Structure formats: structure tokens, C-alpha cells
Computed example of a mutant assay.
Amino acid sequence: MARKTIEERLVEAEQRLKQIKEQARKRKAREQAATKQRERKEDANRKIRLGGLVVLAQLTDADKGFLLGALLDAAQRQQDQQYAARCKAMGDALLNQQENENRSSAAAQAQG
């Protein structure tokens, strides 16, 4: 068996390096795609949760302009401590009520 020349070994090493670089490129592309997909799912989930708040507030049939205006007004007024506390208290009360109803419903289904 003849020994490989230095040139042949160099060509093989360059080919192996090229393969390794391609594998690394593909792995990075897969990781980026997975990250992008995860971010899209998180964004969709966040939007669904926010939409759920609109449903809970019974504003699903509200005019889009009105709804956006109300949100913009709240955004401007959120620095007002009394306003923010009043809004939070109303929201927390409804969320707690909804949570209690969900628990009662789940318990009734488990018994039935």
C-alpha cells in the first residue's frame, strides 16, 4: 500500500473541511429556523391570549376604531395611579370570576 503524498492528504483535508463547514452551515440554518418557529408560536400565543381578554370584556362586536381608541386612551392614562388601580381592580375581579367559573365547571365535569 503506497503512502499518500502530502498533496493528496491536503486535498482530502480540504474536502473534509468543506464537508464540516457545510454541516455547520446546515446546523446553523436548522437552529435559526427552529428559533424563528418558536418565536412565531410565542407571538401567536400572546395574540391569542390578548384576544381572549377582548372576549372576556365582551368587546368582540365592538368597532375596531373604538376598541383601538379605548386601548390608546388607557395607554396614555396608565401613569395615573388612581385610573390604573381602578382598571386593574376591575380586570382582576373579572379574571378571578372567570377562573372560579372555570374551576366550578371542571369540578362538575369531573363528578358527572
Rank of each mutant, 00 (worst) to 15 (best):
M1Y: 12
M1C: 10
M1T: 13
A2E: 15
A2S: 14
A2P: 15
I6M: 06
I6A: 05
E8D: 04
E12I: 01
E12R: 01
E14N: 14
Q15T: 13
L17A: 14
K18C: 12
K18P: 11
I20Q: 11
I20K: 05
E22W: 11
E22Y: 09
Q23L: 11
Q23D: 12
Q23N: 11
A24P: 14
R25D: 15
K26G: 10
K28D: 10
A33W: 00
A34Y: 01
R40H: 04
K41T: 06
K41L: 08
D43K: 14
A44K: 09
N45C: 00
G52L: 03
G52T: 03
G52P: 02
L53D: 06
L53W: 04
V55R: 02
A62D: 02
D63N: 08
D63H: 04
K64D: 07
G65C: 08
L68K: 12
G69F: 01
L71Y: 07
L71E: 08
L72Y: 13
L72D: 15
A74F: 11
A74E: 09
Q76R: 15
Q76S: 15
Q78Y: 05
Q78G: 00
Q79N: 09
Q79V: 05
A84P: 14
R86A: 13
K88G: 00
K88V: 01
G91Q: 15
G91M: 15
L94E: 08
L95R: 06
Q97T: 03
E99W: 04
R103L: 02
A107K: 02
A108G: 03
Q109H: 14
Q109F: 13
A110Y: 02
